[in-house]
Design a protein around this nucleic acid. Structure first.
Lengths: 205, 205
DNA sequence: AACGTACTTGACCGACGGTCCAGTTGTCCA
DNA sequence: TGGACAACTGGACCGTCGGTCAAGTACGTT
């Protein structure tokens, strides 16, 4: 029924070029001063192409983030323990937090860009086409949150796992923490996150 | 020595009008679609006046936030326990977190606006005049973080109080949590924050 | 009343995110 | 091989926004 037409070769090439260029710029400049025109220029394509492929600034950032987080998603779903299935929940949670800190640490710029891309609604007559309303809505965050809250609930079904997961993950979006990461303090962050998570799981109510 | 010239009457009146207008708009619209021109119009002044008084969008938001958080600052510094001095650290921390959730809950829009105002560097030839580089830098956050981390350190000097405080407070800046607050779930958030904080303080390492 | 200065104003500027459509190019089928 | 169609492309263009500035206004002081 649903004809999934293959992507044209030039389109695929351009998409990769755009993604690469964005990566590059993100690595070299502050995210809020990277314009879509710059991205297009760096990728060697027209601005229209960028928007045709990714819809908006937010779309581009989300696509990039998704690419970056793919390996982790795989490892969690079907890799070896303790990240993958098989280990007890608390060990999986600790391993997962470590892994997330790693991903975030290697992509702080992108994370910041994600958060900064909430500039929507260019046309006032829009209604609900929000699509990407905020940094907490993209698929990557969804997966991270789902997994985290499931692991918490597995150990402590009496607690509000959903909210605790938001608290745990929310810290990774905060400016001061991002700045720490930029200074190479990832291990310090991972340690404190472990302490926090352990406190959640072990507290005897 | 330092002649503190009093603010002119019309200037003071205008500043209050601008602050009030911003409050108003913030209560009625999504923060990212409030422009400085709108603020000026709603306050009944010219756009130039707004910038003359507050320097930038960020400056305006910070000023407003400072006003809102002033009462809490007072209560902590010299109010009655458990918020003020006198109670044991863990009780003070719990009370403080409750109070912050309350303030944030009544100012979610402002918080979001704070986070969204990171659009800086209009002049490329700037160097370090950043002034307000991010949401984590304004005096209100500084105070919140300082107090929180001091209370943590008082109870658990062996832990990384600074970072744990960032984790605790960072959750209040995350989109999903802000959205929860918007749905009136402040008590739920307060409860989970208490659980998290308790876990930090009581974990026997 | 007169004066200096702080304050006010809105036209103006450069930049940005996003749109549009005329022109191009890959792909598929005969 | 060729032709036709849809998908893709580029960049001029649009509306808006944050912020600036120079000229005018009015407060407070003496």
């Amino acid at each position: 029924m649903i004809e999934e037409r293959r992507e044209r070769a030039d389109a695929a090439r351009n998409r990769r070029a755009i993604l690469r260029a964005t990566e590059d710029l993100l690595a070299r400049h502050r995210p809020e001063q990277i314009s879509m025109e710059q991205v297009a220029a760096a990728a060697g394509v027209g601005k229209g192409t960028v928007f045709h492929r990714f819809g908006s600034r937010m779309g581009l950032m989300v696509a990039l983030m998704q690419e970056r987080a793919y390996a982790l998603e795989e490892a969690v779903a079907s890799g070896p323990p303790p990240l993958g299935p098989g280990a007890p929940p608390e060990e999986r949670l600790m391993a997962f937090l470590d892994a997330i800190v790693d991903v975030v640490g290697r992509n702080k710029g992108l994370l910041a860009a994600l958060g900064h891309a909430a500039t929507a609604a260019p046309r006032p007559e829009w209604k609900e086409h929000d699509e990407h309303r905020g940094e907490g809505d993209h698929p990557v965050y969804r997966f991270w949150h789902g997994h985290t809250s499931a692991l918490i609930a597995a150990r402590r079904p009496d607690l509000d796992g959903e909210l605790l997961a938001h608290i745990l993950l929310g810290s990774l979006q905060s400016e001061p923490v991002l700045r720490l990461l930029e200074r190479g303090e990832a291990p310090r962050l991972a340690a404190s996150l472990r302490v926090t998570a352990a406190g959640m799981l072990e507290a005897p109510a």
